[in-house]
Nucleic acid binder design. Sequence first.
DNA 1: CTAGTCACTTGCGAAATGCAAGTTACTAGA
DNA 2: TCTAGTAACTTGCATTTCGCAAGTGACTAG
Lengths: 120, 120
Amino acid sequence: MSFKRSDCPITNVLDTLGDKWTLLVIRDLVLGKRRYQEFLSSPERIASNILADRLAKLEAAGLVTRRAYQQNPARHEYLLTKKGRGLEPVLEAIIVWGKKHYPGTKRFPTVRQGFGAIKP
Amino acid sequence: MSFKRSDCPITNVLDTLGDKWTLLVIRDLVLGKRRYQEFLSSPERIASNILADRLAKLEAAGLVTRRAYQQNPARHEYLLTKKGRGLEPVLEAIIVWGKKHYPGTKRFPTVRQGFGAIKP
DNA sequence: CTAGTCACTTGCGAAATGCAAGTTACTAGA
DNA sequence: TCTAGTAACTTGCATTTCGCAAGTGACTAG
């Protein structure tokens, strides 16, 4: 990314995370989801092309790494980088405010990892 | 807002704040800006129709109140509600992460209030 | 040889965005 | 009185992004 709207940290964060989907993908990653189909199966029903776009952008931004967890057939998983995990306090602050002002909302549970996954 | 994407607090927050401009308006309000022209003059150069739209949505969401600070000619100012001020920890977390990962960015200074403004 | 899964990609109509210009209402100065 | 200026928006319209549905290619299991 070359053009910057300003040198405000908030502005720059919004230029990568400021939409209705990116932070939800990161939420899923924080909760332990790793695979394309897992993200697709979240209740918000992200469209597959939007998901592919967001994962590519997150990888380009260094928040996520993509790696094959098996060959034949090739299957990939996505993991948060250290930079990506650094967003947890942001998500935490959002959850605190959200739970207070949107009654009935609840923090989602972490996802148990299946047997096929490689440990980090 | 009637349809909910999910009962996740993050999702619901993103449905009101999840775009490239809304949180910047809130940032300006937190910094002490109150008037339409002040928001327009921020370095990110928000378009006036987008600003009007966001202020209306923020008022509808109960994050902001609009009031006349003078008559003849009528002039208005916008102030954060308690609910709106509750977002400060979110902004704070974003600033911390943003400053770390976007070198050269700096927290913006608060705005001195002019003499015409009514004290909160 | 058929069906199924995974990880995407493509097409296209709908919605959001961004830029410029216009509007209304009032004040201050020549 | 006439002109210019400011504040707070609104309108028109071209560009961009989004979102739904369907399609693709590689592979496996039965």
